[in-house]
Design a protein around this nucleic acid. Structure first.
Lengths: 339, 339
DNA sequence: CTGTTAGCGCGTTCAA
DNA sequence: TTGAACGCGCTAACAG
């Protein structure tokens, strides 16, 4: 069942392992006739080099690691499958393998997954996503000098390579859009406050409101878990207020969808009785009813890009930019108001 | 930057590599005092075994492979992230690593990804999902006798281990539900016909319609690509018909959401003017507007389960069931009609 | 109880 | 141009 090794090939051809290895490796110091014989035999016998052995000898794995932070058993986020597709496709393009782990954030299991990948020398570099306040992953990797690229910035005073989307700017646009539509009672469905992207978005929203003489009233800030269910519950809380908010900004699209659902279940016309906005622009956003006003992040490209940055770093190439901040794009649809 | 090896430990302790290895491996034939010294030194120096070296020596990788079939660049499917979470969590629980690839189905790249994992001995077993007609992946793996478990059955005359959800049964329930509501003009938004799950679902739907004296009229069967956008377009086609269908069955939830969006954009009240159903029960289904009638597949558990089956197979344990067919569950919500 | 020897499959010296 | 020898880091068989 196991395939042939160099040894098998060598024996069959009456050559040494070394010669076979070099013929296959495309070295110049091997007779053309010999090379042809070797290549043909390799083809016939279906020789494929043993990746593990090659790794041990080369001292590198040509593999990148990605620990996906999953929340709860029902982890169902279109955002992540798209990010993964971007990462996976780019890795494949560059002949890198992708080792994936799924772990709940800030748990011993997560820590262990990182240690295993790094200290067990399973991967040459890591992709870190959803950075957190005082993110222990960044501290850990930085201290070791292990190659990694993160999607998201950090509050730590260490210098590392990242790519991020300017969430504050995105939220500024959302706020301005709502203000222009005349909204004064704006509410906010936030994500857990230890997530860096949430902090940036929150700041952007609040700063813009304040610059325009507005603010989040008490009770108008609800924190939940980034899921539809969370957005649903949060929205119900907000709609129980009196007076209720006229506009609700959600920290991501999934929560916005849940919020829309809650509003509609109460007979409110979204985009009319209440404005709702999201963040991410997942494909479902444009097919929601009504279509969701949101902020677009090019998530597939982001996946490709952080992967490319990491691979360059692993190869020891100089990176053109070690800190990339992308401008997101406001996508106005009907959920924030018609006209 | 690289961590210590057994050799480093041995030198420091004045022991042989072997002894250190055995002390760490928990073998009984090592003096308790020695073991303690070794353990302490290992702890101090932060020794972590080199996984690659261990793999080469053991002849197994303790890794399972998973090639995700991705369609187009914007691959955004909540279904897959949940499946992946199930697989990943179970793999971690059993101390297996997970190697992931993302490839477009039925391409040379996909074939190559499988070959690399199998023949390059990167993994001990594979998970195959979204089985296709005359699926070359199954032929390939079966011929080699390589351990794999598939989520989905096959039309090939080979015996292999699989788990599947009875799609025909699910669709039978959907059809009966719609028929009971009095629908006679039922249309169907199907997925590509080379997908096995689609064939089962289609058969279940059509057979049930026929048993009740109905059938899909001409033009009432539209094939598209399993995305919201696809469902959207398909629905527009269906709504151009005269008379238009009174009920539309979609092959998955994503397309159903797109279909709802198209209907609503034409001013139709879903659940009233037209009934729409999906399949999968992704979390968004219950937060759609109106909530989506669909068929539930316990996708997270399925991920865990196929992973567990595969690991047992790899370990050489006898599997209690080599062919599992799960009964799905009809979830009636408002998109198929109120009352 | 401990150390020596061997080998997993490969790439890379160094000699011939 | 080819081959023999060595080592990547680890575990296993065999002595002592």
């Amino acid at each position: 069942m196991r395939g042939p090794t160099l040894k098998d090939l060598a024996e069959k051809l009456g050559l040494s392992i070394t010669t076979v290895s070099r013929a296959l490796g495309g070295y110049s110091d091997v007779a053309e006739a010999t090379r042809q014989r070797v290549l043909q035999a390799a083809e016939e016998m279906g020789y494929v080099p043993d990746v593990t052995a090659r790794r041990l000898q080369k001292g590198r794995t040509d593999t990148i690691g990605f620990v996906i932070p999953t929340f709860g058993p029902r982890f169902s986020d279109p955002y992540f499958s798209e990010l993964l597709a971007g990462i996976g496709n780019e890795a494949a393009r560059q002949n890198f393998d992708l080792l994936v782990s799924t772990r709940a954030p800030d748990t011993p299991e997560e820590k262990q997954a990182y240690r295993r990948m790094v200290e067990g020398r399973l991967v040459d570099g890591l992709l870190v996503v959803r950075t957190r306040v005082k993110d222990p992953r960044i501290t850990y990797l930085s201290n070791l000098g292990f190659p990694f690229v993160s999607f998201g910035r950090s509050d730590l005073a260490v210098d590392f390579t990242y790519l991020d989307v300017d969430g504050a700017l995105g939220m500024e646009w959302v706020a301005q859009h709502l203000i222009a539509l005349g909204h004064e009672r704006v509410a906010y469905i936030s994500a857990p406050q230890d997530l860096m992207f949430c902090i940036h978005r929150s700041k952007g929203l609040q700063a813009t409101l304040q610059r325009n003489g507005l603010s989040l009233r008490s009770g108008h800030l609800v924190v939940c878990d980034l899921t539809e269910g969370g957005g649903f519950k949060a929205m119900n809380q907000l709609l129980d207020l009196n007076p209720r908010p006229s506009a609700v900004v959600a920290c991501n699209d999934l929560m916005a969808m849940g919020a829309m659902s809650a509003a509609q279940r109460r007979g409110l016309a979204v985009g009319h009785d209440v404005a709702i906005t999201g963040f991410d622009d997942i494909p479902l956003a444009q097919h929601a009813h009504p279509p969701l006003t949101t902020v677009r992040q090019p998530i597939y490209d982001i996946g490709r890009r952080i992967c490319r940055m990491l691979i360059r770093m692993i190869r020891g190439e100089e990176l053109p930019e070690r800190h990339v901040l992308l401008e997101p794009e406001l996508v106005v649809r009907e959920s924030s108001g018609i006209g």
